[in-house]
Design a protein around this nucleic acid. Structure first.
Lengths: 239, 239
DNA sequence: TCTAGAAGTGTATATACAACACTTATTGGC
DNA sequence: GCCAATAAGTGTTGTATATACACTTCTAGA
């Protein structure tokens, strides 16, 4: 045991403070080939060895919750510099077969190809899975965590600039529309979409165009209506 | 130590699962005299003895998180049968001077006079405080928990039927409008308000009237637009 | 009987939403 | 070089919703 752990235990009396380990699990979403995907890993250790699950691990003595989530994500998948947001806490007795574990779940939304992932500690493989075709069964209560995370994402899409987190700093309106369509799972009208994001100043014109097998597509970037935490007159996108 | 606690510790190895106690704190809001109020207690024990704080306590071995919140609330304030909702988890190292404690915060919204409160365990007094005039300093990081809770409440008011939780089963439109005004902290237009809640079928006419020093006020009750978890075209109430 | 207090009620204007189709620039394959 | 495929870009109209705004009525209590 390291010194910081010993300090941490000082005065620890399990009859007063019944022990429960605190862990964190991280659900990272991205968009790839027009589909919403989730980062999962193949567990190399018990419990749930050989099952797919979310990156997760235990809180260390001097670490804040968000720091722990960030560290665990980096250790197990190599993903770094990801902005994490607290989702919810899952603590059903029995969710971990070893002992009582309460897990604080975090989520992140990242641009495809902006984070490099690799196999890490306690991990045999790391892979992106389509959110609607997850391997079964998942470790622990990770299926429940993921369904909570998807519901939150859908809700946030309508009143917050969260869609921009899936894209690089400059993007085309077609790409942005693709984010909405993938998350909501339905097509939206292009003309109404463009009118709305521009009028709400969610995005503004950026220099340059993207060339492709189509007319040049103008680049856009986050506009003044996309300040962190901004709340809109909600976007409902054709019902 | 009781047997269930011993079972619980079986296989517990602090070098693998660094210990952090899991606690819960509960922020109960109500409306009283047209003001948003919060239930606080005067702490009878260390730490923060003689400071006001939220009802809170440690998770017991076989208890779910919501059960723990409900039990702690009942033990310390006497409030029972309150519907609790998970708010967020607070785990900054050092937030509890004794040791590392991660606290899962819950919130509830109750009708004034529907819950009886009394002084309970570890408590010297229990009292409702106006949300904009809290005693200072509050125990632990309870000021932060409360400000998160108020922000959540304001957000929910606009897209969910949460306002009805502050009222008894039958209420007048004036009372409902009072909830919105107290939480949002500003006046709303009566004619627009009535039109909107009726058109959205958030409420419907109930039998009877409330007599007072004014024309009889019709009773209303939750309408079909207020099903648990319903999401609206958001109410923004005059800007 | 007078006063205070809240209940109740309608309209006009401005903004936002939803539905809808065609033309154009470019690339890659033939 | 030509053609096919692909996505970019662009306006209008009807409908619905949001906002601003003022007076009368009923009742209880002084």
């Amino acid at each position: 045991m390291r010194q910081d752990e010993r300090d941490f235990l000082k005065g620890y009396d399990p009859s007063v403070f019944p022990p429960a380990a605190v862990a964190t699990d991280v659900a990272v979403f991205t968009l790839q080939e027009g589909k919403l995907k989730v980062l999962l890993l193949l567990r190399a250790e018990h419990p749930f060895q050989d099952a797919w699950g979310l990156p997760g691990g235990f809180l260390q003595p001097q670490e804040d919750l968000a720091q722990a989530a960030s560290r665990v994500l980096a250790e197990e998948t190599g993903a770094r510099g990801v902005y994490l947001e607290q989702l919810s806490t899952f603590g059903r007795a029995g969710r971990d077969p070893r002992m009582r574990v309460v897990s604080v779940a975090y989520t992140a939304f990242v641009p495809w190809n902006r984070v490099e992932v690799r196999t890490g500690r306690r991990t045999r493989e790391v892979e992106w899975f389509p959110a609607h075709a997850l391997p079964r069964p998942l470790a622990f209560d990770h299926a429940e965590i993921l369904s909570t995370a998807r519901a939150r994402l859908r809700a946030k899409l309508e009143y917050s600039p969260v869609a921009l987190e899936f894209l690089p700093a400059r993007f085309t309106l077609g790409q942005l529309q693709g984010v909405y369509e993938a998350v909501l799972g339905r097509a939206v009208d292009k003309r109404n979409f463009r009118q709305k994001v521009l009028k709400a100043r969610l995005v503004r014109r950026a220099p340059g165009v993207l060339k492709g097998r189509h007319p040049p597509a103008a680049f856009y970037e986050a506009g003044p209506g996309a300040r962190e935490g901004a709340i809109y007159p909600p976007f409902r996108w054709d019902r």
